[in-house]
């Protein structure tokens, strides 16, 4: 069980939106976790690469800062097996590469610009995620 946290979830979401707006205002880029990671793997010009590396470093430092300020790590429970984590990770990597983005790039940034591509992508990944959890928890896992 996890408890319903509308206020902290909304506030956290506002920070995610703020990060997206600031990245556009200062660097002129869409904030997509997929794009940041695949850009780092691609190499390319040093200016772009260092920007992505700095973004990733900031992201990775966040849980430690939460620990410093609040005295505890952010809640992180993994209710699935390591096999599911690895298999899921592979599908996510393949999927976001062909889909051109994920929850941050399409779900937040693209939808905020009312991009039809992003709205389509979001509907697609939300639908399959709901369906997948229904299958794993109620049909085979039940």
């Amino acid at each position: 069980m996890t408890s319903f946290t509308p206020l902290t979830s909304f506030a956290g979401g506002m920070l995610i939106g703020l990060a997206a707006v600031l990245l556009m205002a200062f660097h002129g880029r869409i904030f997509g976790a997929t794009g940041i990671l695949s850009g780092l793997m691609r190499g390319g010009n040093m200016r772009d690469w260092s920007l992505r590396a700095a973004l990733l470093a900031g992201m990775v430092l966040a849980p430690g800062l939460v620990l410093l300020v609040t005295g505890s790590w952010p809640a992180l429970e993994v209710p699935v097996s390591m096999t599911a984590i690895i298999g899921g990770g592979l599908l996510v990597g393949l999927g976001v590469s062909y889909g051109g983005g994920c929850t941050s790039g399409h779900g937040v940034c693209g939808n905020a610009r009312f991009s039809r591509r992003s709205i389509t992508a979001t509907l697609s990944f939300m639908a399959t995620a709901f369906l997948t959890v229904y299958v794993t928890r109620h049909l085979i896992g039940g």
Binding site: L37, P79, V80, G95, T103, T128
Partner: peptide
């Protein structure tokens, strides 16, 4: 676009992490 995103949703539903959730979780 549609099938790639659909595949991403399947992986997200299996593991519970999406890229934007997992990168900060590295920390």
């Amino acid at each position: 676009l549609v099938s790639g995103s659909g595949l991403f949703g399947i992986g997200w539903g299996i593991a519970g992490f999406c890229p934007g959730g997992a990168l900060p979780a590295l920390g």
